[in-house]
């Protein structure tokens, strides 16, 4: 999708795009932190009707609502765009031999070529975990690599 960015001197920036249903929509990000959502008219395509105006806080909340599922989607997009690239979440079972050991001890990248990009522990997400990060049973590893690499990682952490 193409987004046109138009600078409005002294006011802010207007982002404009076309929806699949055929409406031309604009989001005006103003200097004072407010956002206007506008829809361009059919009769006069240069004029726009203001649909709603959001304060900075309201816009942040909206972005959170709209942004949450998008992260997962983008992750899927990435693996789709690059042939051979796979991503998976692999659980570390309780009683695994790496339960309570630093991540580096598993030598996952050396042995499989796959990278651990994040460790999900309950509510927390540790992105780009250092080798010193101590694993616990019940952790989930977010892994990026080849499909065969995924199987190898699974074998290591379950062993």
């Amino acid at each position: 999708m193409e987004i046109t960015e138009i600078l409005l001197p002294g006011v802010g920036v207007c982002y404009e795009f076309q929806t699949a249903s055929g409406s031309r929509v604009g989001v005006v990000a103003k200097r004072d932190g407010q956002f206007d959502f506008v829809r361009y008219e059919k009769r006069d395509p240069d004029a726009a009707e203001t649909l709603l105006t959001l304060t900075r806080d309201e816009a942040d909340m909206l972005a959170e609502i709209l942004g949450a599922p998008r992260i997962v989607e983008r992750f899927a997009d990435l693996t789709r765009e690059i042939p051979g690239l796979a991503s998976e979440t692999i659980d570390v079972p309780a009683g695994s031999r790496f339960d309570g050991k630093p991540l580096g001890d598993a030598r996952i990248r050396t042995l499989t070529g796959a990278s651990i990009v994040a460790v999900v522990r309950g509510e927390d997400v540790i992105t780009s975990p250092p080798p010193s990060e101590v694993l616990r049973g019940g952790d989930a590893l977010v892994v990026i690599g080849t499909t065969s690499g995924m199987d190898a990682v699974r074998r290591i952490v379950r062993g």
């Binding site: 409005l8 207007c14 361009y40 240069d46 004029a47 726009a48």
Partner: peptide
């Protein structure tokens, strides 16, 4: 008058209109 024009565009909710960048550029 940058003051009057900017205020007018905002009062009339014309900030998203396509001619607005041209108007603001002339003022700058």
């Amino acid at each position: 008058s940058s003051g009057i024009v900017a205020r007018l565009l905002s009062d009339l909710r014309r900030t998203g209109f396509r001619e607005t960048p041209a108007v603001l550029s002339v003022l700058v």
